[in-house]
């Protein structure tokens, strides 16, 4: 059925091309020995067949023990298909790998975050769109008692006050430019390098990466003054700035 919005439209659009981010399971290849891989893979998948059924799979070549090894992509694809997987493409590898993969019907993918750059990018990438940090959040309204704000994967900036009984959390740093009277937890996913900055510390609780301090244990000399809070050797430091 054609996807028409209005029946009177003579020429209606049938598709759109958009860029999007998709999460794929990655098969990290350590060896080029497809036969050996085949038996181990079957064993692995038999443990959770439903989980893997028809799962798309990217093949990552970055961690090959012998990066130069020839890989039989055609039989690799066959092995994966037999396991009910849908191989979509490869990441990394040399020119010859990419050509061979293409011949076997696989595309070349780029990992968003290259963890072990075996192939350092020779050419500095062209000037891209300025990186937009979409994960950080700026709050201009007061954060009231009973409100909870959590910023996954980024920083939280509060331009106003944080009331007692309010809770602000971020995977990254926290900045508060009004009075901080509620709870502030930075680095809640365990990032120990995160910090809390605030203009006026009156918090009920502050925490960085799970190391916390309650109001009762905050020295009076640090109350009501601008401070930064960070971890040093596993202990929480509150320092005047």
């Amino acid at each position: 059925m054609p996807a028409t919005h209005s029946e009177s439209a003579e020429f209606s659009q049938t598709f759109e091309i958009k860029s999007g981010v998709v999460n794929l399971p990655i098969l990290r290849l350590l060896t080029a020995d497809v036969e050996k891989l085949s038996s181990q893979l079957r064993l692995k998948i038999s443990q959770a067949p439903d989980f893997f059924r028809h799962a798309p799979m990217a093949i990552d070549l970055h961690n090959l023990v012998d990066p130069n090894a020839e890989i039989d992509f055609a039989s690799l694809v066959r092995v994966l298909r037999n396991c009910d997987l849908v191989p979509v493409g490869i990441c990394g590898g040399f020119e010859k790998h990419q050509q061979a993969a293409q011949a076997a019907g696989l595309s070349s993918l780029t990992l968003a975050r290259q963890e072990s750059p075996q192939q350092p990018q020779a050419t500095p990438s062209k000037p891209k769109v300025p990186p937009e940090d979409v994960h950080s959040r700026i709050i201009e309204q007061p954060v009231r008692s009973g409100q909870r704000i959590y910023v996954p994967g980024g920083d939280l900036v509060v331009m106003s006050q944080v009331s007692p009984g309010a809770e602000i959390m971020a995977d990254g740093n926290i900045h508060v430019y009004g009075s901080l009277r509620g709870r502030a937890l930075a680095g809640v996913q365990g990032n120990l390098g995160c910090r809390i900055f605030c203009q006026d510390l009156q918090a009920e609780l502050v925490s960085v990466g799970g190391h916390y301090r309650i109001s009762e244990n905050i020295d009076d000399s640090l109350r009501g003054v601008p401070v930064q809070i960070f971890l040093l050797d596993q202990s929480l430091i509150i320092e005047r700035i």
């Binding site: 309204q141 008692s145 009973g146």
Partner: peptide
Amino acid sequence: VRDSDRMLGILAS
């Protein structure tokens, strides 16, 4: 005052 603050949060959301 605390309860009013809570109410303000509810009004805002």
